[in-house]
């Protein structure tokens, strides 16, 4: 059996995976608890549009993904207010627009299908030095800001009205949370693929919620689960010649199902 760490591309893949697995649950936990998981999906579909845009005009696709997913999450926030009690329509509209844009733009890109496909399903082993640096910077921002705003994010996630009454700037913190969601989705598109990003946001959090007894414990365990899924996913995909993104998601789903079954038995 050959040594997986003998290849520099695998070292880069592991470095990026470990960072994203630490960053994704920091955002995944609050958006799941605020019942905004679908926003991750809509942002990731819009990120695909951004990736296509980036490939088309010759900028790094992750930068395109950042721009489009940021526009998507704030577009959703704007549209939600227009639809009142049917606010979930906003998420579907933005998701559809993202897919539509990807379909149109990919028609103008040389080898469009192959390029877009690598971002749809992830291509972590193809990560470039620039993308690794970008991943390091964005993950540091995501982890740093969520740690700095830990008590504010908890208070708003638990009870927005009470948080506002004790002086927390609710709108500003929600703005930051949406911005970080867009960044997480963009940077993670290289790892698990844009179509499966929300699984990295939601599955580790869901599994941790089943086995934790506090908010802090849930956050810590969701990071442990995300690391477990991504690292084992990279190993398994390498030795069994599978696609890393899909393998990571399937391992996460299997662990979540097992945790749910164990909890049910108790």
């Amino acid at each position: 059996m050959d040594n997986i760490f003998a290849y520099s591309f695998m070292l880069k893949a592991f470095a990026a995976a470990v960072l994203i697995a630490a960053a994704a649950p920091c955002i995944g936990l609050p958006i799941v608890l605020k019942r905004f998981s679908a926003i991750g999906d809509a942002a990731s579909h819009s990120a695909l549009g951004g990736i296509a845009f980036g490939l088309l005009i010759g900028i790094n696709p992750i930068i395109g993904a950042v721009l489009f997913s940021v526009a998507a999450v704030f577009g959703i926030e704007g549209l939600r207010k227009r639809f009142g009690s049917y606010s979930e329509i906003a998420t579907v509209i933005v998701m559809s627009a993202g897919i539509g844009l990807t379909a149109v733009l990919s028609g103008f890109i040389k080898n469009g299908s192959a390029n877009i496909s690598s971002f749809m399903f992830g291509s972590i082993v193809a990560i470039s030095d620039f993308e690794l640096i970008l991943t390091v910077i964005l993950c540091a921002v995501i982890i740093g800001v969520t740690l700095l705003l830990y008590k504010e994010i908890f208070a708003i996630t638990f009870d927005e009205e009470a948080a506002g009454l004790c002086g927390i700037p609710v709108k500003a913190v929600n703005f930051v949370l949406m911005l970080l969601t867009a960044l997480t989705v963009s940077v993670a598109s290289r790892i698990v693929g844009a179509l499966m990003i929300s699984s990295l946001l939601v599955i580790p959090t869901a599994a941790a919620m089943l086995v934790s007894g506090s908010y802090r414990g849930t956050l810590a365990r969701s990071i442990v689960f995300a690391e477990l899924f991504t690292i084992s996913g990279l190993f398994i995909s390498y030795y069994f010649d599978l696609r890393p993104g899909g393998t990571i998601v399937l391992i996460g789903t299997a662990v979540l199902a097992a945790a749910a079954l164990l909890k049910k038995r108790k």
Partner: peptide, 20 residues
Amino acid sequence: FPATVLEVVRANLFSSKGLF
């Protein structure tokens, strides 16, 4: 919601703590 009683009560200390 995965939060302990202490975490819930402590959340209202923001006015005496401030941001960050």
